[in-house]
């Protein structure tokens, strides 16, 4: 008799469980009502099953966001883990939507789920992509603007992972400043 040995497939666990959020801009509702928790994942395989299933960011309607945050952290300034923090912000031109937006967003996700920031990965809260007619934005959110060592390490590593040229400068803004910004724009607490 032939014995068939079936090897169970073991999924690869991630260091953290992550939540995917989706935001669709419906001006008739308060913004909180437009924010939806889509699903959670904590293995490499489940990440890909989700990523391959959902719409590419470049194909979302203007006014939509994706956000991927550690389980238990909501993608808003007010969350306890965000309110003292800030974000490394990547602003893209309209032309970059078709060329680089999806590639940058995937690389951002791979940095998150792969724990690409060494000991400072604990400072990571999540990442947001805003699809907007006036120019798309991608940002990595960290929990503490005062933890300069962590913020700078995350910024340098992130810039490298995106393959941004040295001459391109990215800025880190505290959420508290972004929340109270006047029309003039938000000052950068750090740049790399």
């Amino acid at each position: 008799k032939e014995i068939l040995i079936v090897q169970p497939y073991m999924k690869h666990p991630l260091q953290n469980r992550w939540t995917l959020w989706f935001y669709k801009n419906d001006k008739n509702k308060p913004w909180q009502a437009n924010l939806r928790l889509v699903t959670k994942f904590d293995t490499v395989e489940d990440f890909w099953a989700l990523y391959n299933h959902i719409q590419l960011a470049s194909r979302l309607m203007s006014g939509c966001d994706y956000a991927v945050f550690k389980d238990g952290i909501e993608p808003m300034w007010e969350d306890n883990r965000n309110k003292c923090g800030g974000r490394w912000l990547i602003t893209l031109s309209k032309q970059q939507r078709m060329l680089e937006l999806d590639q940058y967003w995937l690389e951002t996700l791979l940095c998150l789920i792969g724990e690409a920031f060494d000991d400072y990965s604990n400072d990571i809260c999540g990442a947001v992509i805003n699809v907007r007619a006036k120019g798309d934005k991608i940002a990595i959110w960290t929990c503490d603007t005062e933890n300069e060592e962590a913020v700078l390490h995350i910024g340098k590593t992130y810039k490298e992972r995106l393959g941004l040229p040295m001459k391109v400068v990215i800025g880190y803004q505290a959420h508290a400043d972004t929340a109270t910004k006047s029309g003039l724009g938000v000052k950068n607490k750090f740049v790399v």
């Binding site: 690869h12 666990p13 991630l14 260091q15 490499v44 395989e45 990440f47 890909w48 099953a49 990523y51 391959n52 690389e107 791979l110 789920i113 792969g114 724990e115 690409a116 060494d118 990965s121 992972r161």
Partner: peptide, 20 residues
């Protein structure tokens, strides 16, 4: 021990079930 995965390792799994 921290579960760290580099991008090449992660990318290797994108279509793993399709190839099974």
């Amino acid at each position: 021990d921290k579960k760290k995965y580099d991008r090449e390792f992660l990318l290797g799994f994108q279509f793993i079930f399709a190839s099974m």
